[in-house]
């Protein structure tokens, strides 16, 4: 049964931070610990602290919300893997929320969401009244954007929206959270071609 005022812990490590939001009914508290590296060591103790600061334990949670990117590939895998482990250990759902959904939460359509990518690029997704279009990666300077753009959010507002979007999906069947990379893995076939095999 759906809890009337759910308790959800959301977190995100898609950029240079460990970000957490604890949603309890209508209230949300957030914590952002900035760090360029070391998220894998810092994340679990920090989340346990966020809960204990609110007088809660892990067993009080109804769901986990997790930021699935796009962003730093290693960073999004850290959070997604942790969320999947927590879901398995707690027998509660882990709900993946991507950065575009967090940025556009509650905004009127149509709207475009942009997330910084390396080397002057950005990840982009258009949301129309007919639904979201496929996300893509663009070079910002070459790609003028028509129509409204979702305002940039602070890390705290971003992770709070991950918690809100996750809360809206409670009770629905959820796929396991999976990273949203947008960009394909860098991999090239071997340069040396295979030899011709003679009859």
């Amino acid at each position: 049964m759906l809890p009337k005022s759910p308790t959800i812990l959301a977190f995100d490590t898609s950029a240079a931070h460990c970000a957490a939001a604890l949603l309890q009914g209508d209230t949300i508290t957030t914590r952002i610990d900035e760090m360029a590296k070391g998220q894998a060591e810092h994340l679990m103790p920090m989340l346990t602290e966020v809960l204990s600061d609110a007088g809660l334990t892990w067993s009080d949670l109804d769901a986990i919300g997790v930021g699935t990117g796009p962003g730093n590939f290693t960073g999004i895998r850290i959070s997604v893997s942790a969320a999947r482990g927590l879901a398995l250990g707690l027998s509660i759902p882990a709900i993946g929320v991507n950065g575009f959904e967090a940025l556009t939460h509650g905004l009127p359509l149509p709207i475009t969401a942009l997330i910084d990518a390396p080397r002057g690029s950005a990840y982009l997704q258009h949301f129309t009244v007919d639904g979201p279009q496929a996300p893509e990666m663009i070079v910002v300077a070459d790609h003028p954007i028509d129509g409204p753009i979702a305002p940039v959010l602070s890390a705290a507002d971003h992770v709070a929206n991950i918690a809100r979007v996750a809360a809206g999906r409670l009770g629905q069947t959820q796929p396991r959270p999976a990273p949203l990379y947008v960009r394909a893995a860098d991999a090239a076939p071997p340069r040396d071609p295979a030899p011709v095999i003679l009859p």
């Binding site: 679990m44 942790a82 482990g85 879901a87 398995l88």
Partner: peptide, 10 residues
């Protein structure tokens, strides 16, 4: 490692 930490924490 992160999945293991998640299960152990939970």
């Amino acid at each position: 490692v992160m999945c293991a930490k998640g299960i152990a924490t939970a």
